[in-house]
Amino acid sequence: MTTSATIESPDLAPATISVKASKAKKKLTSRAATIAAIVIAVFWTIPTFGLFVSSFRPAELITTTGWWTIFQNWGLTFDNYAEVLTKSGASSANLGVYFVNSLIITIPGTLFPMVLALMAAYAFAWIPFKGRDIIFIVVFALQVVPLQLALVPLLQIFSASGIAGTFPAVWIAHTIFGLPLTIFLLHNFISEIPGEVIEAAKVDGASHTQVFFRIILPLTVPAIASVFIFQFLWVWNDLLVALVFSGGTSDVAPLTLRLAQMTGTLGSSWQLLTAGAFVAIALPLVVFFSLQRFFVRGLLAGSTKG
């Protein structure tokens, strides 16, 4: 119990601690850290991995034996994927069509709110105006408005302006529903850019538009990349908004609708759910990997406040 003092206030550990001891401790923590990281990674991956293994198993085996017994209960098939990818019927096309629909919805559904939110976040951070803080607080509090309650009023406006049931209606809806979170996230990064940088530009006579394009945008690339991912995922995985605002006809419907339909009118089909989940997850993972390089050290955003 001699170390109790250190445990209570480890940050006050005496500076006289020997270099040797410090090094030993560091090694230890880093080994512990490695183990902890592996444990987290494994724990976070196993459920998905189980689903992944199951997606290659025949339906009967999925419902009678555990996926970890795949070697004892051998049975490997690509049928689930073949069925998910190529199945089409009189009431539905194959998955490729829905994939395209998803892209047509997701690209503007991500781009539009990002652009508007960047501009608004900049204004909330760096253009002083009356009532700015209150408006900003209201904007981020709007995140809590349940989407389901906002659908009907917006739908009424869309039918009055004659764009209900078109892709643009879905885009506008996603833009509106995405704004509170994207503004909030981007504002955080933009407001942490050191004030001197912007003041200097202003002194040189730069307008807000110029500051926005020359300073803000380049400096917030990592933030844009991460917020982009979240907005992209939200739109990509959305079923409700697309369904209500596109009118839900199978010709404009996204991938999520098709996957939801495949499990049958009333029943559940594990084997199709498993394969479908991996088809839907593929593109988000590609996007994540390709944006990885933007999350790098050395860029100013997210730095300590001056």
């Binding site: 608004a120 408006i135 904007v139 906002a150 406006i157 509106i176």
Partner: peptide, 12 residues
């Protein structure tokens, strides 16, 4: 800068 967002949020 803020107009479009505020307008959309008011309506939606």
């Amino acid at each position: 800068f803020v107009g479009p967002s505020i307008l959309l949020l008011l309506v939606g």
